[in-house]
Design a protein around this nucleic acid. Structure first.
Length: 219
DNA sequence: ACCCAGGGTCATA
DNA sequence: TATGACCATGGG
């Protein structure tokens, strides 16, 4: 089976195994901004630690661009402490809130070609490729496939790419292999993360993994 | 007592 | 282009 067909096939296997993941989880009445906050807070951080921070923010009605702009930095740091790197992340949230407040609202921010938004996001300190694509896909519903360490690890173990493949190179493989569907992109990325969390860690539990027969690296 | 998590920036060569 | 230091909490 060639790479393109493998990429398609693996999606079906994971969907059958795990079902729909429904990413991105966001419960507030300001989901788009909540997703943006989560995208920053989850940088190199377990999601469970981010959930605590988001609850703290929601409890204080702070899932709001202007309120993040105005809140005292030390208070903000304290509220997001559980996410780690709280000094950096508080600063990043402030920078992003300041940037976004140039727009009337997030609908206006996202009402432009995706590539233009992506360039703008990448110019903001604290937003790299993955965070930009997460924001575009999950907050903006733009068709940008998100690549993360899990995605790279799984597809390296399948022999589809090398360990150090460039972000855009791996992203292009997905774009070429899959129909340009926002829902598919959202689900596939989430399924890869679920799979890697359970089975594809540093010492992978290959004997349980639904993708076992595609994986070339045992142990 | 380690290892890792839904990364990104900055300095250095 | 490509390494490495740094950021920091919380669960396994």
């Amino acid at each position: 089976m060639n790479k393109m067909n493998k990429i398609k096939k693996i999606y079906q296997i994971l969907l059958n195994e795990h079902g729909k993941q429904g990413w991105w989880p966001a419960k507030s009445n300001n989901k788009k901004f909540e997703i943006i906050i989560g995208a920053i807070l989850t940088q190199n951080t377990a999601w469970r630690n981010v959930e605590i921070s988001i609850k703290n923010l929601a409890k204080n009605n702070l899932i709001d661009i202007n309120k993040i702009k105005k809140i005292n930095s030390n208070k903000l740091k304290n509220l997001i402490k559980s996410s780690g790197f709280f000094n950096q992340k508080a600063e990043r949230l402030k920078i992003i809130a300041n940037h976004l407040s140039n727009y009337k609202n997030l609908n206006e921010f996202f009402k432009r070609p995706g590539k233009e938004i992506r360039q703008e996001l990448l110019s903001i300190k604290g937003i790299g490729h993955e965070t930009a694509d997460s924001i575009l896909l999950y907050a903006g519903s733009k068709p940008f496939f998100v690549i993360d360490a899990y995605t790279r690890r799984i597809f390296y173990r399948f022999g589809i790419c090398n360990e150090n493949i460039e972000y855009e190179d791996l992203q292009n493989l997905f774009i070429q292999a899959l129909p340009k569907s926002i829902r598919l992109y959202k689900e596939y990325h989430a399924l890869l993360d679920e799979t890697a969390k359970k089975y594809c860690k540093k010492n992978p539990l290959c004997f349980k993994c639904p993708l076992k027969k595609y994986c070339k690296k045992k142990k």
